[in-house]
């Protein structure tokens, strides 16, 4: 069982992702804002982070940068983006993401992606 941090402001998406990860048998840590995400990443030391990019306040890219700046460099961060944003692959990688998943979230895709990093 691994510990997975989900940073996601939308309640329903949070529930959806948490549910899928739950069926995989992993522990879920939830953060609703970027700042909370950075704090929990430092405090909880998760094995993987799922990062929504379109967050209110500091966005997913900025949050990712800050987490990396805290010295957490080995933990894979998978970006969760809307289709419209996915073209910015370069930007995601430059900010420190290791991969990305496009919305709408397909349970199969998310399982495959997480499986690839853990």
């Amino acid at each position: 069982m691994k510990k997975i941090l989900i940073v996601e402001d939308n309640e329903k998406n949070m529930y959806l992702i948490s549910f899928i990860i739950g069926t995989m048998g992993h522990q879920v840590v939830q953060a609703k804002t970027g700042e909370e995400g950075v704090a929990l990443a430092v405090a909880e030391r998760p094995d993987l982070i799922l990062m929504d990019i379109q967050l209110p306040g500091i966005d997913g890219l900025e949050t990712t940068k800050r987490i990396r700046e805290e010295g957490i460099t080995a933990v894979p961060i998978i970006a969760v983006t809307s289709f419209a944003m996915s073209g910015d692959r370069e930007r995601l990688l430059a900010a420190g993401c290791n991969g990305y998943i496009e919305k709408p979230i397909d349970p199969g895709t998310i399982k495959d992606e997480i499986g690839a990093f853990l």
Binding site: L16, S82, P104, D106
Partner: peptide
């Protein structure tokens, strides 16, 4: 709209996917 219209749809599609895969 690109964000607001898609968010609920993503949710619908996502949960439908969970149900269809028999996860629930």
């Amino acid at each position: 709209m690109s964000h607001e219209l898609r968010t609920p749809l993503n949710s619908i599609i996502g949960f439908t996917g969970i149900l269809l895969q028999g996860l629930a």
